[in-house]
Design a protein around this nucleic acid. Structure first.
Lengths: 223, 223
DNA sequence: TGCGCATCGATTGTCGACTGTATACAAGCA
DNA sequence: TGCTTGTATACAGTCGACAATCGATGCGCA
């Protein structure tokens, strides 16, 4: 159940379903709505002072994103996270990034946009600001994908990134070495700049796999 | 617009939105609803003798599948196919299949389930049955993905396969050499059986790229 | 003539009420 | 006792009506 909340803000007069979807999505990927939490249309509608229709549609959007499970006529819930699904998510991520860097190096795209995100990560690490670090990390990787100039890939990535954010929000944050996280990225930029495909691929692959291992470890204690 | 149709069959008492979604999906991937065709909720609802709610939800499902475009308050339509989107779809397909075969060879999974689909393809080619050939081809590739034992990959594949089917349905069918299509597949099975990763990768990649080229060629004359 | 502006039609967006389905639990029966 | 059968409840699913939005059309006016 989502915490009690006042009336819904209709920013920019977006359709309500999108506002509601965003609210739920944020709650899920930030870990406030944990896997398994029941999502009940009527309850949500009442809390947000809207009818069930837009709530229902919002839930269906998140269903398509793979964040919510639908058990027909029984109920919906935040999709449970299993070790296997975490492994699958990270292994696909590895493929996507590998594909992206191959395209980037082939096309000779300018990789300088990555640098500012690296700086942001170090700044966040120095300030011990985990939220900012996660945001900068996400921005770095999304930019990497964007440089591949592949619309479908970017769409698929955005879906995947949601689930990765969810996983990261769920793991025990106290144990992360923030500067280490930031330090993982400059070598990728360097290797990209040097057009050293093999080295980039190896770094990216290692990056995904170590993240996967960390998450699997922490999900054991907090499933 | 979908052709006039009597009352909707509520097979197995599935929720209406799923029945409607299936109907629309089939129409799109079989090419009866061509890219750009407007999809109007009210009209569909009347044709199918249901209310707008399930129709609306069905449309949203296909929106998530990437088959339908939504221009808010203006209308929805079958998403137009551009050369770039075709290229993107096939290039992602290539990545997925490459990933799948790497996993298959690593895990040593039994690839014999592929053989029956190859047989089916040759039978269809001999009978000059294009529909059966396309079905067998789709089954072959889906099985290949399934053998990788990766749930998320299979989900992503199924979405992609829809759009590939749509593209294939839209291209001029008279010009295909059916036996040639079938003949492309046995070498893949052989190389898989021999665990020859490099050769499989090369074959699979070639397979995707030639399909992409053919489709791009035919989409020029019928966009 | 040409330009702003009310109006209208088409289409999606939202609502509240009704209906269908599944589960659990209690009541009836062999 | 153990099985079936009813019944209550908590949901999702569907419906018909109404509201909001956008684009086009046509009208008045300089």
């Amino acid at each position: 159940m989502v915490e009690p909340q006042a009336d819904i803000a209709r920013i920019e007069s977006l359709p309500l379903r999108l506002v509601v979807a965003d609210m739920l999505r944020t709650g899920i990927v930030e870990g406030r709505l944990r896997p398994g939490t029941p999502i009940v249309e009527a309850a949500l509608a009442e809390q947000l002072n809207v009818s069930r229709a837009p709530v229902r549609e919002a839930i269906q959007i998140l269903e398509a994103d793979g964040l919510i499970d639908n058990l027909p006529y029984k109920g919906k819930r935040v999709k449970p996270l299993t070790a296997k699904s975490v492994e699958e998510i990270y292994s696909i991520r590895e493929q996507f990034e590998a594909f992206a860097v191959r395209r980037i190096i082939e096309s000779g795209a300018d990789v300088s946009p990555l640098s500012e995100h690296v700086s942001a990560m170090f700044a966040a690490a120095d300030a011990a600001d985990l939220v900012a670090l996660i945001a900068a990390d996400a921005a770095f990787h999304r930019t990497l994908i964007r440089l591949a100039d592949h619309g479908l890939l970017l769409t698929l990535w955005d879906h995947l990134a949601l689930r990765i954010r969810q996983i990261m929000a769920l793991r025990n944050r106290a144990n992360a070495d923030l500067r280490q996280v930031a330090a993982n990225h400059p070598p990728i930029v360097e290797a990209l700049t040097a057009r050293d495909l093999d080295r980039v691929l190896s770094l990216v692959s290692q990056h995904s796999r170590s993240a996967s291992e960390i998450d699997l470890k922490w999900l054991e204690v907090a499933p």
